[in-house]
Design a protein around this nucleic acid. Structure first.
Lengths: 170, 170
DNA sequence: TGTGAAATTTAAGATAG
DNA sequence: CTATCTTAAATTTCACA
């Protein structure tokens, strides 16, 4: 129940978004509590049309979830870290094991499997460095084939969000 | 209006969250449309008490925003990239200029100022590589002091979310 | 904090352009 | 597909004890 955001729910293709959909999406992705009528007035549609579209967008999975964004400092997880993880070629199979380990971890905000220097890039939020140390120690213990973990400490999060660019959303 | 998530709104300290607050937060951060009564029943509180707490949490900035998470593929921004940006020591002042440039960029999902190999780590979503090329070209043109941009292409987003770990939230 | 009433919002259906 | 209107249900807001 803790983590809603694996990407298992992908929107079905085949249905294109029209300009109205995009304008609705641009609005709910910055505030999903706005009444349909308020959106309707802004984009020139009736409230029921907006509700109909919202329902369909949710059903199709275009809207994946509606969530509250919390203040990290208030929750005592003020430390953000970016970890680049690399595997040696001969242990590449162990990557799958680590992936399975990372996703359920509450401290893990995001995890990306990448090309380039790292095999995995992980963004995490913890209370302090000792907490991060404990995490790394656990991972290394459970997946000893990890080649290296390169950690960057975040000085300041300049922008933190998941709002996607919506082409005709203005 | 496009980007709600710079961190300008920090929750005021001085008010501690109690166990009820944390249990409420843990729930709304995975679904902010849940009726207060449903949450209330789960944590053993009345619906209006939950509403009152939600309002206070919003006012204090503990709840920073309530937003819809959209499907990247449906919006045609299926390509995720992680860019590490570095400056030479003598051009370090130009970093502030680039920071100001990055935040308003719709393609920029997150930007972190970091210690370590990179001065800046940026996660972005674009339609395709040419789109990314254009972005980089613009940045390099507007801030020529950029030393290097090391790009990692995301093969697969394993976990994408902003749900923070909530200590007593179960 | 809880209870209960009022106001708002959502949801669903029916009709028509 | 849309707008409008109607009805019902669900939810939030606000008074008060």
């Amino acid at each position: 129940m803790s983590d809603s955001d694996d990407l298992s729910t992908a929107a079905e293709p085949g249905y294109a978004l029209d300009a109205f959909d995009r304008r609705i999406l641009a609005r709910v992705q910055s505030d999903c509590h706005r009444p349909a009528e308020s959106i309707a007035a802004e984009i020139g549609l009736s409230a029921s049309a907006v509700q109909r579209r919202l329902r369909r967008l949710r059903e199709r999975g275009v809207i994946r979830a509606e969530v509250a964004l919390l203040d990290a400092a208030a929750l005592g997880v003020g430390l953000t870290l970016i970890a680049g993880i690399g595997f040696e070629r001969e242990h590449y199979a162990a990557l799958a094991r680590l992936r399975a380990l990372l996703a359920p971890e509450p401290a893990v905000q995001q995890a990306y499997s990448t090309t380039g220097d790292d095999d995995l890039v992980v963004i995490l939020r913890v209370a302090d460095m000792p907490a991060y140390d404990r995490l790394c120690a656990r991972w290394m213990a459970q997946v000893p084939q990890i080649g290296r973990i390169t950690t960057q400490v975040v000085i300041e999060p300049l922008k933190v969000g998941l709002a996607l660019p919506v082409p005709g959303g203005d």
